[in-house]
Write a protein that binds this DNA or RNA. Structure first.
Length: 647
RNA sequence: GCCAACAUAGCUCAGCUGGUAGAGCAACGCUUUCGUAAAGCGUGGGUCAUCGGUUCAAAUCCGAUUGUUGGCUCCA
């Protein structure tokens, strides 16, 4: 695979970094140093714990090496010669393994610059002097070969560009990104908090954030009503039996909160001296009959013998729900359905809990409790393609309304080698074909990714890039042929015989938490009026007009607008500045002139001073902007041409 | 969970090699009544994340714990 010139430059930087590393730390054992989308890194095994001071030293040494103007020389060798070179340089710990990765018959090459020589397919720039704009950024831990069972190495991250200007621009961009980080803005704009005592990864939505979430939920609910969905509500916990049937427990045990038993049962077990291990075993156990059913259905031993217990050993318990689907399935199954009723579309903003690893938690985007804008559709096989398409168009509507156009669509297919995926392969093929077709009619480029499917069926994910370039999976649509079988769902067809429905799981936002996190960064806190926690700030020039301002505030509130009045005795400039910092979309300046004419002087955060209009005209204008969920329009309206008739 | 760094007022941060805390902004009060991004003066506010150790003395040194950040692993 040919490298781009930029990759070549960055890859060369990796080698120069390694050269510098060995000069300063001769005992360093090198692993691998590739270019990345944003720079390069090198993984190194080193007794010495690298510090930021070391980064500066390494960078200075790299500059020296660049100035030494060493040529990059390619050398092709036999496998035996390669082993000799690696051994002679004392780099056998990782490099011999890397050498073994090169398939037999492929060329083996080394690249040399100065005293340094590395096993490498290339390619490189010609001279180290070409490296003019690079910077080491951070040190991180990284497992050898990305496997947590292996030793953790020290990874040095850096970036490089063709010119110093581009490097500076990139570093500025990183700074800018920090300014719109949802964790910073969440604090500044008082949108949400996380409290140690409540727990890591558990979001407390403060009043301002709650307004945004409520508006988004209202928006979604309106769209769902248009599309024939029914709203339901279900509790936050469910019995283990439910998740044993669905297959969620205990296969995903490591990412679930621990199951808990009923208080009476716990007390009884405690008096019997039951150990925790025993309690767990009895909670996770299943009956022989149930195991046989599941194993037969799956066509393999899904339930291992150790989990099968006698009836008197089985202990029923509860768990925090990791998904809403089993609850919705039970609502569907609570009454008989005719084919005429289908599709049944059940929607809920359902809160679920997952035990994410502590190191994975991140602001609102990776949390332990979150609310999905979830829905489950139950339909006939003939309806699948159309319903999937309906779900996709809903996601697209949502993203378009919010001006989120930088996303990609990922069709997650099963990996034939993995036992994670259950169900009939023929049904999988049909479902995968339906997803592919639906994705292709969406008019958005999409990629197919084997192994990314849910265990019960293929899925279509919407992946959005945040400002730091990280990708977040938001909306998702998943086709499921498995759970209807597990829960023995049926509907009566036109032939008066029972048929198996197909389920579709979908969530246009994914989760309210993650979506809001990404949305905060998307708007950099400058929310459109319909989402802004505070839509209008009234700013009286002096307290002489405070009575008019108070009356106006009451009027705006009565009209359902979110307004506040700045009663500080600051000068106008300070009040304007405060409103700007609070990112309020509209500031109304109220002075003597306005009070006398029952008007307002409008200042838009997006467009600046917009002049004076009557209070009534402004209320009507803002209400229309909110009702249409308009995005902020940065452009000033074009002034009417002189002499042109007023429109 | 793993590697590393960090944790001082509501926020952003200062506090050198140990001698029991400071600024700006915010809040509150007074003065000012002002036309599109910062008026002036004053007041209150901190068990220096928590617990333990070293020391005559700890925000400062050491250890543990909790949390945060950057990565890694993971993400039904």
């Amino acid at each position: 695979m040919a490298m781009t010139p930029l990759d070549e430059l960055r890859h060369s930087c990796s080698h120069v970094l390694a050269t510098a590393l060995l000069r300063i730390f001769p005992d360093a054992k090198l692993d691998i140093g590739p270019p990345t989308d944003t720079g390069f890194y090198y993984d190194v095994d080193l007794e010495h714990k690298l510090t930021t001071d070391d980064l500066a030293k390494l960078e200075a040494e790299m500059k020296k090496i660049a100035e030494e103007n060493q040529p990059f020389l390619r050398k092709e060798v036999s496998r035996d010669e390669a082993v000799e070179i690696i051994k002679s340089r004392g780099q056998e710990r990782y490099k011999l393994g890397r050498l073994a990765d090169i398939p037999e018959g492929e060329k083996i090459s080394f690249y040399q610059n100065g005293e340094f020589m590395d096993l490498c397919a290339g390619t490189h720039v010609r001279y180290t002097s070409k490296l003019k704009a690079f910077k080491l950024l951070s040190i991180a831990g990284a497992y050898h070969r990305g496997d947590e069972k292996n030793k953790q190495l020290q990874r040095i991250y850096g970036t490089a560009f063709a010119s110093k200007d581009e490097l500076a621009a990139y570093l500025t961009q990183l700074e800018q990104a920090k300014l719109r980080d949802h964790r910073k803005l969440g604090k500044d704009l008082k949108l949400f908090v996380v409290d140690d005592e409540v727990g890591q990864g558990l979001i407390l939505w403060t009043p301002n954030g709650a307004i945004i979430r409520q508006e988004l939920q209202t928006f979604i609910s309106e769209e769902l009503r248009k599309q024939g969905y029914s709203q339901v509500f279900t509790p936050h916990i469910g019995k283990l039996a439910l998740y044993k049937t669905s297959g969620h427990f205990p296969y995903y045990k490591e990412s679930q909160f621990t199951a808990f038993a009923e208080p009476d049962a716990m007390a009884q077990l405690a008096t019997e001296g039951c150990s925790c291990a025993e309690l767990t075993r009895r909670l996770e156990g299943v009956s022989a009959q149930f195991a046989a059913e599941i194993n037969q259905r799956a066509g393999k031993e899904v339930i291992v013998k150790e989990r099968i217990l006698d009836a008197d050993q089985l202990l029923e318990g509860f768990m925090l729900k990791p998904m809403n689907c089993p609850h919705h399935i039970k609502i569907f199954a609570s009454q008989p359905h005719s084919y005429r009723d289908l599709p049944v579309r059940l929607a809920e903003f359902g809160t679920v809990y997952r035990w994410e690893q502590s190191g994975e938690l991140n602001g609102m985007t990776r949390v332990r409790g979150f609310t999905q804008d979830d829905a489950h559709l139950f339909c006939t096989e003939d309806q699948v393609a159309q319903e999937v398409l309906g779900c996709l168009s809903l996601v697209k509507t949502v993203l378009t309304t919010l001006g989120m156009n930088d996303y990609r669509v990922r069709v997650g297919l099963r990996d034939p080698d993995s036992s994670k995926f259950t169900g009939d392969p023929a049904k999988w093929d049909v479902a995968e074909a339906a997803c592919r077709t639906a994705a292709s009619t969406l008019g958005v480029p999409f990629t197919e990714e084997p192994g990314e499917a849910a265990f019960y069926g293929p899925k279509i994910d919407f992946v959005i890039k945040d400002v730091i370039g990280r990708e977040w999976q938001l909306g998702t649509v998943q086709v499921d042929y498995v759970l209807p079988v597990r829960f023995n769902l049926s509907y009566i067809g036109a032939d008066n015989a029972p048929h198996r429905p197909v389920m579709i799981h979908r969530a246009p936002f994914g989760s309210m938490e993650r979506f809001c996190g990404v949305l905060i960064e998307h708007f950099a806190g400058d929310f459109p009026a319909w989402l802004a926690p505070e839509q209008v700030r009234l700013v009286p020039i002096s307290d002489k007009t405070i009575d008019y301002a108070r009356a106006l505030l009451a009027k705006l509130k009565a009209e359902g607008l979110r307004a506040s009045l700045d009663e500080h005795s600051d000068k106008l400039g300070a009040k304007i500045r405060r409103a700007e910092i609070d990112k309020v979309p509209y500031t109304l300046v109220i002075g003597q002139k306005e009070a006398e004419a029952n008007s307002v002087s409008v200042r838009s955060r997006a467009r600046g001073d917009e002049g004076v209009m009557t209070a009534d005209a402004y209320v009507a204008k803002l209400k229309a902007e909110v009702a249409t969920r308009a995005l902020p329009d940065k452009k000033k309206p074009a002034p009417a041409a002189p002499g042109a008739p007023a429109s």
